[in-house]
Design a binder for these strands. Structure first.
Length: 564
RNA sequence: UGGCCUGUCGCCAAGUGGUAAGGCACGGGACUUUGACUCCCGCAUUCGUAGGUUCAAAUCCUGCCAGGCCAGCCA
């Protein structure tokens, strides 16, 4: 009988400052008890673990309060957006289980309405067409410590503004010559309130609306309206938008929206050793420093998926790290912990030899093959067992033999005994080496027939147990091991990413041997290789003729840790 | 040097005036045909800092220090 909490319970118990805000709204009946959140990605890149963190905040809150969750593509800048990204984003969200039901929206669907709202602000004398150049606007804006000054176009008549704005829309002006601005306060200590631009002219074809528009609303103007149009109650975003909140509220207030949505901010999440900036990710992909957006070294959701992470492990990770107002840098060890936790007791544990050395049993009958029955996962008997062929010629892991054993080493060494997992106790009698190079060619051992697993003699204890594979039965496989992609953090503008890439971030081992049992394994299948880690069959490079495994995470290795 | 925000163990993070939860990491031990897993045990007399209010402060007040964000016709 287990009383452990499942995720639902954990979510129920988990509380943060956002829950308190919503609890209060519920209590006061601000939105008639309604909760609706949204995730508004711009389709200009792939989702990564930081995006999943943001999605999870909005998604789990909608779930907790029996509310709704929308997916909305915030596509108000045609120069940067593309359909490829909306497809990848929806695919990754579905994989994670973030369900927007029938509420998939596009900010571009609201262009007509947003235009009308702009017109009504002009009519209220709260917006004007400005003809200052880009540089002039910057100059007039002032600095962080000094106020700006009013644009000479600030006090045009409503009629003139209406006329000019209409002409902007119909394409009579060149890009950059005119913008629509909100009339707020050029001396506000908040730069966002110094007559922010609401609309700019862009003769760029939009991936959805084509050439219908040549003016596009800015984020600050479009976002509160998108939220309002969709009935969003709580518009949750990360801290860098904190300074935009007064503007968000200003637009909704001037437009006299009742029960306006609330923008609330949370701290961003970073992970040690992972690149979670969209900008850097794009540079790495476009510059072909990595194998696409789904490179297993990247913290993109597609990269994590290809690497072998489960959506459950990512979700548990996100729920365990929590949310606060402060930004965080979470240790990647927590993510790895979540994966091990999820897979343990769930996937078969098999044997693989990554760096093989030949081992010969000199007293084992020539040509004999025994089928050793081994449990697939001792913690989960329901996963059954398999028969593994055992012969007198095996491969073992290079690091499981030491000619001169270090103190505390209890695997194979000359004269020493060790158990072959699921088979016999063996003793190392001789080491055959290449006379010139000193390279170990094979290890010769004798086995004790009385100690076969299951026999009475198997009760004898030896200090070490190692994994093995029969050389004539083993399958050849390629294994990819990963380390940090960037050993040092990049700063500012990076000219050449190759200077930052860790050459060991991807280690390809082409000559690995695995149990014949794995012959039928399919891309995406996961296994634990005993003592080596959790692995996933790569979905991109595995073919009928070639098996490629990605190591998701290594297993803990206290011996290696203590001897490093 | 303007405004806003944030500072609780190495890393996340509860706590919201009544005497510091939990997880990861780490250290020690038991168990083990995975040096894994599991199981025990340990791990903040102290909450950025200095004062103040109070019978009582991580929680309230004041000053200081540190970090973050903002001067795109990006989102």
């Amino acid at each position: 009988m287990s009383f452990e909490l499942d995720n639902t319970d954990r979510n129920e118990m988990f509380s943060n400052f956002l829950h308190k805000i919503i609890d209060k709204d519920m209590e006061e009946g601000v939105y008639d008890g309604r909760v609706q959140t949204r995730f508004p990605p711009e389709p200009n890149g792939y989702l990564h673990i930081g995006s999943a963190y943001a999605i999870n905040i909005s998604y789990s809150i909608a779930q907790k309060y029996g509310g709704k969750f929308n997916l909305r593509f915030d596509d108000t800048n045609p120069a940067k957006e593309d359909m490829e990204y909306v497809e990848s984003i929806t695919r990754d969200m579905k994989w994670m289980g973030f369900d927007w039901e029938d509420r998939l929206f596009y900010g571009s669907d609201y262009f007509d309405r947003i235009y009308e709202y702009a017109v009504s602000l002009i009519k209220k004398e709260k917006a004007y067409v400005c003809e200052l150049t880009l540089d002039e606007i910057r100059e007039y804006r002032g600095t962080l410590t000094s106020p700006g000054k009013d644009s000479p176009y600030r006090n045009r008549s409503i009629e003139k503004n209406l006329e000019l704005f209409e002409k902007m829309r119909s394409g009579e002006f060149e890009a950059g010559t005119k913008v629509l601005r909100a009339k707020i306060d050029m001396s506000s200590p908040n730069m966002n309130m110094r007559d922010p631009v609401m609309y700019r002219i862009q003769f760029v074809s939009h991936y959805r609306t084509g050439d219908k528009w040549c003016i596009y609303p800015m984020y600050d103007f479009a976002h509160p309206l998108q939220d309002y149009i969709e009935g969003i109650t709580h518009s949750l975003c990360s801290n860098e938008f904190k300074n935009h909140r007064p503007l968000y509220e200003w637009f909704l207030n001037e437009l006299e929206i009742k029960s306006p949505p609330k923008q609330r901010e949370f701290g961003r999440m970073n992970i040690t050793g992972a690149v979670t900036s969209k900008r850097y990710l794009r540079q790495l992909v476009k510059g072909e420093f990595v194998d696409g957006w789904d490179d297993p070294r990247l913290p993109t959701l597609s990269g994590l998926r290809r690497r072998g992470f489960t959506p459950e492990s990512i979700l548990n990770f996100l729920n365990e790290i929590g949310v606060s107002k402060d930004s965080s840098t979470v240790d990647i060890a927590m993510l790895e912990h979540s994966l091990r936790e999820d897979l343990k007791g769930k996937v078969p544990c098999l044997m693989a030899v990554l760096r093989p050395i030949k081992l010969v049993l000199t007293n084992y009958p020539k040509g004999q093959v025994e089928m050793m029955e081994i449990q697939n996962n001792p913690e989960s008997p329901e996963l059954g067992s398999r028969k593994v062929p055992f012969t007198g010629e095996l491969y073992i892991e290079e690091e499981d033999f030491m000619e001169i054993p270090a103190k505390g080493y209890h695997r194979l060494s000359p004269g020493n005994e060790v158990r072959l997992k699921g088979a016999y106790i063996i003793k190392c009698e001789e080491v055959v080496k290449n006379e010139k190079t000193g390279e170990i060619l094979e290890i010769r051992c004798t086995y004790d027939p009385e100690t076969r697993s299951g026999l009475i003699g198997s009760a004898r204890k030896v200090k070490g147990t190692i994994h093995w594979v029969s050389s004539m039965h083993a399958l050849n496989a390629e294994v990819h091991l990963y380390e940090r992609l960037l050993p040092k953090d990049a700063e500012g503008e990076v000219e050449d990413w190759s200077e930052y890439i860790n050459p060991n971030s991807l280690v390809v081992l082409k000559n690995c041997f695995i149990e014949p049992e794995l012959k039928a394994s399919k891309p995406g299948e996961r296994f634990q290789f005993i003592r080596l880690g959790h692995f996933c069959v790569d979905e991109k490079y595995t073919t009928d003729k070639k098996l490629v495994f990605n190591r998701i995470v290594p297993l803990k290795d206290t011996w290696k840790k203590n001897n490093k």
